[in-house]
């Protein structure tokens, strides 16, 4: 009796199996690597209408974060300053610089400067800046070393896992309240400091919500 199937069909099942394994592995790895805010959000650095350098203003001149983002410690929203804040100095410093024309126009006309927003939590997340900065969570924990950025970029994923990581172990991220706006501060890697940090969490009655309704109200 002649063979119904040619000889090469013998290796076909194993080839198909290998093919499926390869394709599935690639899809799983690809989705894990790419379908996450660690890829989609981190590194977002849009061109702003005015090339404001945080590295110069915050890093080199050491202007406090709250000089411009004044209400971060009193409001859920960390405000972008009005152009009058820029003009406090730039009415004297580089007062004819063409790069600052937009700021001067805005100050004259009252129209806002169209800054491009970088950090956005989804609208079903109720994030409050003031409660974090007033309880020892520094700007740097979510925004990275803004004081070293010439152009601000999205430094952390700000995914739910990112939030929960800290909400589950606040003592690993907390710092003395007076160091919150000091992005340069380094957390001591000592046992004593761990005790101090645990003490902060206890003394300030920090109980970060881990339930859904804590943030999704």
């Amino acid at each position: 009796m002649a063979n119904i199937f040619p000889r090469w069909v013998n290796t076909l099942p194993i080839k198909i199996i290998i093919g499926i394994i390869l394709v599935k592995t690639a899809i799983v790895l690809g989705v894990t690597y790419y379908f996450t805010p660690k890829f989609t959000r981190v590194g977002y650095a849009p061109t702003q209408p005015v090339a404001f350098s945080h590295a110069l203003h915050s890093g080199q001149l050491e202007i406090d974060c709250r000089y411009c983002h004044t209400f971060v410690d009193r409001s859920e929203h960390s405000n972008v300053p009005g152009s009058n804040v820029c003009m406090s100095c730039h009415s004297m410093v580089r007062k004819d610089d063409p790069q600052l024309a937009l700021i001067r126009d805005s100050y004259e006309s009252g129209d806002p400067v169209p800054w491009v927003r970088i950090h956005k939590t989804p609208d079903y997340v109720y994030f409050n800046h003031s409660v974090h900065v007033n309880r020892g969570i520094s700007c740097v924990e979510c925004h990275g070393r803004i004081d070293q950025m010439e152009v601000v970029e999205h430094a952390m994923p700000l995914s739910m896992g990112f939030c929960l990581e800290c909400h589950r172990n606040p003592e690993e991220y907390i710092r003395p309240v007076e160091e919150v706006y000091n992005l340069d501060w380094e957390r001591p890697e000592t046992e004593e400091y761990k005790e101090v940090a645990t003490g902060f969490v206890h003394d300030w009655k920090i109980n970060p919500p881990q339930s859904c309704s804590g943030c999704h109200r």
Binding site: K38, F39, T40, G43, Y44, A45, P46, P122, D123, H154
Partner: peptide, 20 residues
């Protein structure tokens, strides 16, 4: 790769009700 800078706004793969 992850972490490379981009001027394009973040891709929202599953937009759900992110922007209301």
């Amino acid at each position: 790769f992850r972490g490379s800078t981009s001027k394009k706004p973040p891709l929202e793969i599953f937009p759900d009700m992110d922007r209301q």
